[in-house]
């Protein structure tokens, strides 16, 4: 079967019931999405299916009809997205294991709702568990990213000026705009 991940089409031959997460991790060696629970309770495996966050550990690969975006498709160390940059600015990560999923949930939230309230942040992020307790900084980072999105043209340019790639479509706002 064919699977489009971060703009690349892959041909995979696996059990159709295999959750997307294990196709990404063990078949395609895309390791950003993490295994935490396998039952949609922790969010470590969050990826986007056509821009919507899904728990890839509980999503059979055969049910995937659309484009998959993983954390690797959101930005790279040399060209981070606005959300990733906010994560760095706030030094959010501790162990970092949950953070791919946190960033994917936050990115999906901000794409739909560039200035979420505290309650909206809670609602969008409560499926993502963090055993290190980085929630206060996640909240601050989402707010910073949201503020950056209020002046998207300037901010997105600034960030991409610092990067070696010049792909503004990687910034969440550009995708929606």
């Amino acid at each position: 079967m064919k699977l489009s991940v971060n703009g690349t089409i892959h041909e995979v031959d696996v059990d159709p019931n295999m959750p997307l997460l294990w196709v990404l991790r063990d078949e395609l060696n895309i390791h950003g999405p993490k295994f935490g629970c396998g039952i949609a309770m922790c969010g470590a495996c969050t990826v986007h299916l056509d821009g919507n966050p899904i728990r890839s550990c509980s999503f059979p690969v055969s049910a995937v009809k659309g484009e998959i975006t993983t954390i690797e498709g959101v930005g790279t160390p040399d060209a981070m997205s606005i959300v990733q940059q906010a994560w760095v600015d706030h030094q959010v990560a501790q162990c970092g294991y949950c953070q791919s999923g946190q960033i994917m949930s936050a990115t999906a939230l901000l794409e739909k709702n560039p200035s979420p309230t505290d309650d909206e942040i809670d609602a969008a992020m409560s499926g993502n568990l963090c055993r290190c307790g980085t929630y206060p900084r996640i909240r601050s980072a989402i707010k910073s990213a949201s503020a950056s999105l209020q002046a998207p043209a300037i901010k997105a340019t600034e960030i991409n000026l610092n990067s070696t790639q010049d792909d503004t479509t990687k910034a969440p706002v550009a995708e929606e705009a």
């Binding site: 390791h31 981070m80 990560a93 970092g96």
Partner: peptide
């Protein structure tokens, strides 16, 4: 800044798993 902050914010940090 944590020495691991960029890898951990971009899904590129390598954990045991």
């Amino acid at each position: 800044d944590r020495v691991d902050i960029i890898p951990k914010s971009t899904g590129t940090a390598e954990f045991g798993v």
